[in-house]
Computed example of a mutant assay.
Amino acid sequence: MSITLKHPGKGRTVVVPDAVAESYISQGWVVPGSPAPAEQDSAPSKSWKVDELKAYADENGIDLGDATKKADILAAIETAASSEEDDDADADDAEAAAVPADADGGADD
């Protein structure tokens, strides 16, 4: 027996024997018509299509400004992601600063 699988990022379709289908699925391939795997929600890359990048930006509240070309859209997404990481790091620093330096969990010396 065989199964038809589609790569969600590239759109390519292949027919593979059932014995190797699990290997393809673990690499992101899906049965046509099924939802894309969670990995699709990972960071966008050059392999994504413009429509996929725009959808990702929309779903994640990323303003693309006047970007219309693939490279510009991807750059806007990457800029938004790096600024989000900076915000997370700043929040972690602020949280650490809020803990008194002499806090030892209540242990006696």
Score class of each variant (00 low, 15 high):
residue 70 K to V: 01
residue 17 P to I: 10
residue 42 S to M: 08
residue 92 D to R: 15
residue 74 L to M: 12
residue 8 P to S: 03
residue 2 S to E: 07
residue 56 Y to Q: 01
residue 10 K to V: 09
residue 77 I to R: 02
residue 25 I to F: 02
residue 80 A to C: 00
residue 16 V to K: 03
residue 79 T to K: 15
residue 70 K to F: 04
residue 87 D to V: 05
residue 87 D to I: 06
residue 71 A to I: 14
residue 59 E to N: 10
residue 71 A to G: 09
residue 53 L to C: 12
residue 76 A to H: 01
residue 100 P to R: 11
residue 26 S to V: 11
residue 100 P to C: 04
residue 18 D to V: 12
residue 39 E to Q: 13
residue 67 A to I: 04
residue 17 P to L: 11
residue 3 I to Y: 00
residue 47 S to A: 15
residue 52 E to M: 10
residue 38 A to W: 02
residue 58 D to I: 05
residue 89 A to Q: 10
residue 12 R to T: 14
residue 36 A to P: 05
residue 16 V to M: 02
residue 28 G to Q: 09
residue 71 A to T: 07
residue 46 K to E: 14
residue 97 A to R: 08
residue 68 T to K: 15
residue 58 D to M: 08
residue 18 D to F: 13
residue 10 K to N: 09
residue 108 D to R: 09
residue 14 V to Q: 07
residue 13 T to C: 00
residue 63 D to T: 01
residue 29 W to R: 06
residue 44 P to I: 11
residue 53 L to G: 12
residue 44 P to Q: 13
residue 13 T to I: 11
residue 106 G to F: 09
residue 99 V to D: 00
residue 77 I to G: 03
residue 99 V to C: 00
residue 95 E to H: 06
residue 56 Y to T: 01
residue 5 L to A: 03
residue 26 S to F: 09
residue 40 Q to T: 08
residue 51 D to N: 15
residue 66 D to K: 14
residue 51 D to Y: 08
residue 58 D to Q: 15
residue 11 G to A: 06
residue 88 D to R: 15
residue 13 T to S: 00
residue 16 V to N: 03
residue 63 D to M: 01
residue 58 D to K: 13
residue 25 I to W: 04
residue 5 L to T: 03
residue 93 D to M: 14
residue 62 I to E: 05
residue 93 D to G: 10
